[in-house]
Write a protein that binds this DNA or RNA. Sequence first.
DNA 1: CATGAATGAGAATTCATTCAT
DNA 2: AATGAATGAATTCTCATTCAT
Lengths: 192, 192, 192, 192
Amino acid sequence: MRQKTGDKHSAILQAAVQVFADQGFAEAKVAWIARVAGVATGSVYNYFESKEDLLHSIFRDMWSRILEALSELAAQEEIPSAERLERMVDAVFDRFSADSNLARVFVNEQSFWMHKWEGDLSDLFQRFMDLLEQTLHDAGLKPGMDPRIQRYLVFGAVRQLIHQWADPKCPFSRDAAHSQILLLLRSLTTAG
Amino acid sequence: MRQKTGDKHSAILQAAVQVFADQGFAEAKVAWIARVAGVATGSVYNYFESKEDLLHSIFRDMWSRILEALSELAAQEEIPSAERLERMVDAVFDRFSADSNLARVFVNEQSFWMHKWEGDLSDLFQRFMDLLEQTLHDAGLKPGMDPRIQRYLVFGAVRQLIHQWADPKCPFSRDAAHSQILLLLRSLTTAG
Amino acid sequence: MRQKTGDKHSAILQAAVQVFADQGFAEAKVAWIARVAGVATGSVYNYFESKEDLLHSIFRDMWSRILEALSELAAQEEIPSAERLERMVDAVFDRFSADSNLARVFVNEQSFWMHKWEGDLSDLFQRFMDLLEQTLHDAGLKPGMDPRIQRYLVFGAVRQLIHQWADPKCPFSRDAAHSQILLLLRSLTTAG
Amino acid sequence: MRQKTGDKHSAILQAAVQVFADQGFAEAKVAWIARVAGVATGSVYNYFESKEDLLHSIFRDMWSRILEALSELAAQEEIPSAERLERMVDAVFDRFSADSNLARVFVNEQSFWMHKWEGDLSDLFQRFMDLLEQTLHDAGLKPGMDPRIQRYLVFGAVRQLIHQWADPKCPFSRDAAHSQILLLLRSLTTAG
DNA sequence: CATGAATGAGAATTCATTCAT
DNA sequence: AATGAATGAATTCTCATTCAT
């Protein structure tokens, strides 16, 4: 049963997510990713430029999907802005809940590589942060709060919860994490 | 050319912080750290077991100092608990404000390595998180908020601010960052 | 310049024998072995675990072949036992006469490494010594001689002749060496 | 209690014998030899040129002492030549029985280094072999036996017994080894 | 496109030796 | 002579990447 071309591309990506999550990018071996994906080592290079490109693709896909979801949300003006904020966070949460390996890659590698790569990926992330800022602003932050800075606080808080949740030894449930982040969001807005 | 004077141990550690910050741990070369420290390559191994031990020592020193400062704070019962919380965050902030290279190492490497090392270092970090939880509890979180989870939100928020602040292109001042994190803390407590 | 043809496994082994013979195991460089074998340094590690594994493989092959020859001999019960003993020694002699580099590796490294490795290789050597003991016993040692000990004397004597013979400056011929060892064997047996 | 100068020299030599026996020359660390000898690393170089010189000194002392003993023996013309041969072997045996670490160094390193060093040490060994040849000749080898070659057989046989005996797992006693080598010697001479 | 053996640049680490004290 | 921290050359082994098939 031959795999279709498209399958191989994503099989490799998925394998890379798993191996990067387990070993970290630096320790991950391309040959091992290929093994996990069920292809030959050389085949990886038929689909990706390099090991680094693999990570880059993972991040690009990840942020593209997240942005796509968030852009839809942002367009739905009938939703109250406070609820839009919560739904944004939900969307991010959902993305990582669905794939704890991706969550671990995000947590471990994003800081370093997003800083190192100065290209399209930073733009994607920037758009995400801008959306978050706008939404925070619309939701009505408490007096004195600067959405340009608060967005980082919110992002950092969510990132850390994802970090904990992606750990198999995490003592609290996804739902508990989720409700606590909502409480934080509400306390930041005048409504809270 | 044999260097005898000076504290090589610290010189190497400091050089390592700088090089790890610039290149990332994986890309950092021991020979380059030695060069920066002004010692021979082999001398690094007179003071540290391995490149990884270098990073471990950096983290141990970092968390030891932070914990020391926080332990003092925690003991000062005459300070109102809400203020203690703010001072705790100040202490962490101060530690990294004083050394932006250390901040970058913290931001880029902590997640991965703290998970990989399961030893004394995790304990140190755990004690930090426990202190944070206790202080949040004492400060009086809003109804429904679980200090076991909120501590991660607070830690993540602070971590992210440090991340931004350590970036030379960061558009806001350390003071602005600081006042915004205080606003967040206050909004989490009933007082806010 | 990518070499595809030929048996790299053997080429590397053969090169290793030569280089180990010339430089000694400790002084031999893997890169040099690769050069002699006409392959890239890294290719050595496609076929062998380590430099030590290279030596181990040399010894395993050597003893396997010798044991194979001796086992055949031992099975031929129609040959008088005294002659079997001589033929055994011949077989060992032939093996090393055919490859003086192998002889030098045997002479220089066997004592140390056979003691250091406690695994399958020792078993192989043990079987060789047991065969020798049995053959000495069958050939009829002189009164008072213990085959459990005499086998070491015989082995040591043969080993030393190989040692001398493998030296380019050796003043006597292979045949002279051979006839002298036969005289010794005969003097050990009642027939002598 | 300060050590006298002479003590340090021999303390280092003795430590070197032990460490070379345990680890092999190549794996032995000068720093460890110094530790065992109870001196500083640098002190080794006050008494010896190099690590290799240490081994060289060990061999020179060893062969000097052996030759000294054998020369005495050779001079005692009142002793029957057959007995002189046996006493020669005894002397060699005694030397190594008294120091099993020295025996192991002899067994493991002599072949390689004696070949590598082409100087005074080879001469010493040569004189030993010449004495052995002369003694074998005097003792009266069986017809057809060439003392130029038989001396190697005898040397190799004795060397191998020393090898076995120096192994802690050796199943036979020193005395058994000794009596078996005497039986071999006797069978080589017409008297046997 | 698929394969996986071959490549070789690169880096952490070791350790014999030196030398300032 | 004694010390032991400092040195840096040297080497094994790794692994991302290539390319002949």
